[in-house]
């Protein structure tokens, strides 16, 4: 196995946490910054922020803060929508993901990806593939396919104890 292969990842922030998702899955980033671009879909699950018109198609947008069990965006708070093309059960799913901010695009070497730490805060390995330490910051590599296809609110940390 060649560990020196590196891949490009899009780095985004949700509250204080940094997350990474492979750039191959990213179709576009909509810097909307305002709520009006998302059409509210009544009676949908709370983690669904609504739908957007993306290149003529109607695609759902996931409110990632609610999906990952964080505090919701406050009124007027800025956000971006990352449009992703995910392969779930051999089918293509185009979905939008709300994020606070897109931070960077970085190269991550495969050898730098560490398995999630087993001690301390227990991260849920269903949704996090691994962690990377960059400049003393932990970046979580998300398994968005699992997170999105789950109908539930996803708890990234298995125990809810915060420090």
């Amino acid at each position: 196995m060649n560990n020196t292969i590196s891949n490009s990842y899009l780095l985004f922030r949700l509250q204080e946490e940094l997350f990474a998702v492979s750039v191959h899955k990213v179709l576009e980033i909509i810097e909307t910054g305002d709520e009006h671009h998302i059409t509210h879909l009544p009676k949908a699950a709370s983690s669904i922020a609504g739908v957007v018109n993306f290149r003529g198609d109607v695609i759902p947008v996931v409110n990632s803060r609610l999906k990952f069990d964080m505090d919701n965006y406050s009124e007027g708070e800025k956000f971006v929508v990352i449009i992703l093309n995910l392969q779930i059960n051999e089918q293509e799913h185009v979905v939008g993901l709300k994020a606070d901010k897109v931070v960077d695009v970085i190269e991550i070497k495969n050898e730098d990806v560490k398995p999630i730490p087993e001690v301390g805060q227990g991260y849920n390995s269903d949704y996090i593939e691994g962690v990377v330490n960059r400049a003393n910051k932990f970046i979580m590599l998300l398994n968005l396919e699992n997170a999105i296809s789950s109908n539930e609110i996803v708890k990234l940390k298995e125990d809810t104890v915060e420090d």
């Binding site: 879909l41 009544p42 009676k43 669904i48 739908v51 109607v58 695609i59 779930i88 799913h93 979905v95």
Partner: peptide, 19 residues
């Protein structure tokens, strides 16, 4: 008619969307 994808498929009152 545009389907809204698997995520919101189970919606009872709304079956699809249109731009």
């Amino acid at each position: 008619i545009k389907p809204m994808g698997e995520l919101v498929k189970k919606h009872e009152e709304i079956s699809a969307a249109s731009v």
